[in-house]
Design a protein around this nucleic acid. Sequence first.
DNA 1: TTGTACGCGTTATCAA
DNA 2: TTGATAACGCGTACAA
Lengths: 342, 342
Amino acid sequence: MTSGVRNARPPQPTLEMVAAEAGVSRATVSRVVNGSPKVRPEVVVSVTAAIERLNYVPNRAARSLASRQTQSVALVVPEDMTKFFGDPYFAAVVQGITQRLDESDYTLNLLVASTDPRHKTMRYLRAGNVDGALVISHHTGDNFVADLESTMPVVFGGRPTNDSGANNYFVDVDNIAGSMSGVQHLVDIGRRRIGTITGPVDMPAGIDRLTGFRRVLENAGLATDAVEHADFTASGAAAATRRLLERCPDIDALFVASDLMATGALGVLAELGRAVPRDIAVVAYDDSPAATSGPIGMTTVSQPSKEMGFAMADLLLRLLADDETVPHRNIMPTSLVLRESA
Amino acid sequence: MTSGVRNARPPQPTLEMVAAEAGVSRATVSRVVNGSPKVRPEVVVSVTAAIERLNYVPNRAARSLASRQTQSVALVVPEDMTKFFGDPYFAAVVQGITQRLDESDYTLNLLVASTDPRHKTMRYLRAGNVDGALVISHHTGDNFVADLESTMPVVFGGRPTNDSGANNYFVDVDNIAGSMSGVQHLVDIGRRRIGTITGPVDMPAGIDRLTGFRRVLENAGLATDAVEHADFTASGAAAATRRLLERCPDIDALFVASDLMATGALGVLAELGRAVPRDIAVVAYDDSPAATSGPIGMTTVSQPSKEMGFAMADLLLRLLADDETVPHRNIMPTSLVLRESA
DNA sequence: TTGTACGCGTTATCAA
DNA sequence: TTGATAACGCGTACAA
């Protein structure tokens, strides 16, 4: 009932207190905490007991200040929250990352911000909050990454847009080959008027999947004009699909650059009474949960999103451990998964 | 090309360096950085210039160690990643939280972990990484919160399960009243055999929404046996719906405790050829994007999820600022949104 | 194997 | 208004 009681929290125990409790020096306690081999077993036992008794947990700020490392890494996502939460692709990547990190002592800091990535986020990063960074979903305009790389090890998910120096570390799939396999399937089942809903053309994944689309159609001697751009969201894809059908009402197949966008496209097709796959066959990209959660299972280009997250984290951890043998790029395989939509 | 170059990153500038650059003492630079009013304007200018020149950013560990605060708060979610990313409810809450935090100097640390919330997460929290914590989606078994509260200010999203002391701070809606409004609507439109798919019964939101369901039916003199429990996931709800329809094939209405679960239920109903709302009217809960993204718009109990996140963050920030006037609970309003499903 | 002593980069308390 | 100087809690040479 007394006001002010709220802030009357007991101070956390310190190394000093544990040392006193165990009757040794701070240094010895520190050694025990950090698992140094050169401590007498009996001392380890008594110190450990003291730690338990006091419920001691090392202070991270002090530890980080002294050791010059934080034992945590950041995942930087230059998108807004709704996009981040809306696309199952991100969920899969994050899962893979945390899975790898859970095997280590590192913790993850999620930095989702399109609004002002260069200021608040960069400040946070440069303030020594993390030892390294993972960057996914970056766009051509995101030049903050250059600054970042001069500060700490960085691993990209997806080929960086500024990969000129080829000194970047990244995990990716061959988006061109992936989309080619999907579009080729549409050709193989006899479709001749094929359209596409692309991702943003300021992102490698958007560009490359469009390139694959064009390449297949050119090889097959088909028209490549049925193209509409979207933004990797369901609503954006829905609008793009409407535009495309208005401009090219005769298409008999559609390659959509992500599962999430395909849900939007399929919604419009259903609304307009175009039967899938009979009237229009649809191939998507990702093989995320979105591919199977709708009324009609999507034929889609499967990429190992979760494994990519895992690989990114693994790469970064090895970088942080000064592993000299890590390869700069890790290109993972895609495969076409056949379901109902095509 | 030289190996080892990777780690040749320039050291971050320190207060000391800025002081030398500006020709003043560390203390003065510190004052400028922290916006102290008692520094000569001309000195402020020259120090600021030096800071710019050196691209200085204060080291957080050192600052945190000295000031005994971190300027960051945690959002603790005792669920696994898939659940967290799968439910739009969480997205909305996180959005609200970040929105409030963006107006402040605090940053957010997301801690999502059902696997081992008491060990790694609690350790992280107790290591002084954050000044306060937000807890959402907590279950009866989550007794780690007691420890947490003895360490730092905590604000809950949803009435805490151990709210005996009534000393907790939380933001919530009246789940009983909310669900009552939804179920009453089903009664009002003439439905007489009403079932429900509940949330987990170890969570207040699950329990209370079930209580509201029972209360309305009892008031109306209707049977309350058509109840199946689920876990706030689409697939869990789908399975529960199948069980319910097998046991009570005669139901003409269904109250589902969340929008996400309703997507699962609606899928099963469609699959089984039960027309909605004609054969079975459906009322859901949340009014998240999931309520309008499917083929049939959901009639649902709307709760201000984003605003709740905002309010939680606001409450915590005021607690951290030693605001004595903050109320312990903030109960926000719900409203029934009528769409096609009922 | 253990303890002493210094340094990590800031904040905060004094004097000046 | 400014500048020494002592914390803050921990890691780690170095010495014992």
